[in-house]
Design a protein around this nucleic acid. Structure first.
Length: 516
RNA sequence: GCCUCUCUAGCUCAAUGGUAGAGCAGUGGACUUUUAAUCCAUUGGUUCAGGGUUCGAGCCCCUGGGGAGGCACCA
């Protein structure tokens, strides 16, 4: 913004001290003071510690690709410029070795006092770990064969005034890792890897969907009604409209309006918000991919689910083989499909179905220590039994199908069983990964289902939905038969990155305010 | 919301209730092929905060705070 002014150390941070005290004491305050004093010295000498831009000829990966096989002890005339962060410094008197890292990799600088002269050499010795530099030099290898840049000139691109975490141990304090993700990313390769995987998965999903004719759309985050899922919303307020709004808890209802509008194949990868607990599997804001395919049903979207996740695995980790809880599975093999009622029946040792008398199901729930509420019908009881009896045993990717109609207000009834719906959930490692169904498109039945939701909400179910009149109006214009799918992108990232906490795949997870 | 664990130098970690230490980073010095360079010297602490017990508390107790894990919650 404003031009650089000489001698402006601009100490705006709590621990800064005047430059005069640069050589006294130690600790963070002294370290920052020392580095801030360097800024003054650089500016006093007519330099700029924060130049505006820098042109490089190569990324470090390109250097390695081009010259990675040079024999040990080779000097070339190949002039290159690179840019990166100083990660390590090794000073052996009249030689300095520095490890420079950019996004693509690391390479060593070979700096000889005899080559670059006393002043430039002294300037390089003043570099600190963490500084960003632009480097001009020629490609060489050392006697031991290490690919290096024989350095002619180093330009400071940005001075770091705060020291990096431990160069060997990195940053392990999880609180600091999540709060200062920037520091985590600088020093922890595993953190970089997890996010590379996450972002490659998202790119892969987009490619797969684009190839199949899906259009990426953006629908509102601010909703007048929080529908499309069973969850407690965040509330907010629009001042000019003086209107209470909710942050969306699902993408579903707007995307299906677009199917009504004739868009045929749409998807959105977007943030949704649920005002619920935080755990290793739940963050209050998370990323959902939802797609809707006209003229398809649940079978079509089950097939797409397998393709999306399997291709994402190829793209992000280079294999479809996954080890989960010590067992190895191939994502590319068809995922088992099991009806929820059959899974529960097997575990219970008797036939279980939502059509059974409610007292029988309640007794069964009691036998398995499932807490139930009076207002629950048979369908809800079956689901609770499933969660208690079956969920923990699901390891490999599995479609659990045929959810009771009672708990699936937006899914179409099973063409063979009016108590169930043509719905499935994908489970892996006991975690829900996705959810899809043949979409209910009968506006009259949809109204009845909404009214049941409204009744449940009125009876005290905070997560229940309401009657979305505009959505029903849309259905009244006619929605073609449609298959819909939602996949939790964070959960896919956890699966493929092999991490146990959702915070490992969310750059800035929700935390309490830091007390500084 | 409940239970358990955890919080010591910038980072990673030590320290029977008895003078708060090490490695890295930093500072000064040596070293022209290092690889977490090495070697010599050296600075650095509100032990998360506040109470309490004790002759004496980083350590024991209480309250509060941050975080993690588990439970609850959770389509």
């Amino acid at each position: 913004m404003s031009a650089d002014t000489p001698n402006s150390s601009d100490p705006t941070v709590e621990t800064d001290q005047p430059a005069d005290s640069r050589h006294t004491g130690s600790g963070l305050a002294a370290e920052k003071s020392r580095r801030l004093a360097q800024l003054d010295e650089i500016r006093a000498a007519g330099g700029t510690p924060y130049p505006y831009r820098f042109d490089r000829t190569h990324t470090i990966e390109q250097i390695r690709d081009a010259w990675g096989s040079l024999e040990a002890g080779t000097e070339t005339d190949e002039a290159v410029t690179i840019a990166g962060r100083v990660m390590l410094l090794r000073d052996s008197g009249k030689l300095v070795f520095a490890t420079i890292r950019d996004r693509s990799g690391e390479v060593q600088l070979f700096v000889s006092k005899a080559v670059i002269g006393d002043d430039a050499f002294a300037a390089i010795k003043r570099l600190d770990l963490g500084d960003w530099v632009g480097v001009h030099g020629t490609v060489m290898t050392t006697r031991k064969g290490e690919l290096s840049i024989k350095t002619d000139r180093v330009e400071l691109l940005a001075k770091a005034v705060r020291p990096l975490p431990d160069k060997w141990h990195g940053l392990s304090d999880v609180d600091t890792r999540f709060r200062q993700r920037y520091a985590d990313l600088i020093v922890n390769a595993e953190a970089q890897r997890a996010f590379e995987i996450r972002h490659e998965i998202i790119a892969s999903f987009r490619r797969t969907l684009h190839e199949r004719g899906f259009i990426e759309v953006e629908t509102p985050v601010l909703h007048a009604e929080a529908g499309g899922a069973h969850a407690r919303p965040f509330t907010t307020h629009h001042n000019a409209l003086d209107m209470q709004l909710y942050l969306r808890i699902a993408l579903e209802l707007h995307l299906k309006r677009l199917i009504v509008g004739g868009m045929e194949r749409v998807y959105e990868i977007g943030r949704i918000f649920r005002n619920e607990g935080i755990s290793t599997r739940h963050n209050p804001e998370f990323t959902m991919m939802e797609l809707y395919q006209a003229f398809g049903d649940w079978n079509d979207v089950m097939d797409i689910s397998e393709v999306l996740v399997t291709q994402a695995a190829r793209d992000a980790i280079g294999t479809t083989m996954l080890e989960i809880r010590g067992e190895t599975f191939d994502l590319a093999e068809p995922w088992p499909r099991i009806r929820m009622v059959d899974a529960v029946s097997e575990k219970a040792g008797r036939t279980v179905h939502p059509s059974q008398p409610i007292d029988e199901l309640r007794t069964l729930a009691d036998q398995h220590s499932v807490r139930w509420e009076e207002r629950w019908g048979g369908g809800k009881l079956v689901e609770e039994l499933f969660e208690t009896l079956c969920e923990a045993d699901i390891v490999r990717p599995t479609f659990v199908t045929g959810h009771p109609k009672e708990i699936s207000p937006l899914a179409r009834a099973d063409r063979d069983d009016p108590w169930l719906t043509e719905r499935f959930e994908i489970f892996v490692d006991s975690r829900e990964l996705g959810n899809g169904y043949s979409e209910l498109n009968d506006p009259v039945e949809q109204r009845l289902r909404f009214e049941e939701e409204q009744a449940a909400k009125d009876a005290g179910d905070h997560e229940a939905g309401t009657v979305d009149e505009d959505y029903i109006r849309a259905l009244e214009y006619g929605m073609p038969p449609t298959g819909g799918l939602g996949i939790g992108m964070d959960r896919v990232a956890m699966l493929l990155a092999g991490v146990d906490s959702i915070k490992e795949v969310i750059l800035f997870p929700t935390l309490r305010h830091e007390v500084l």
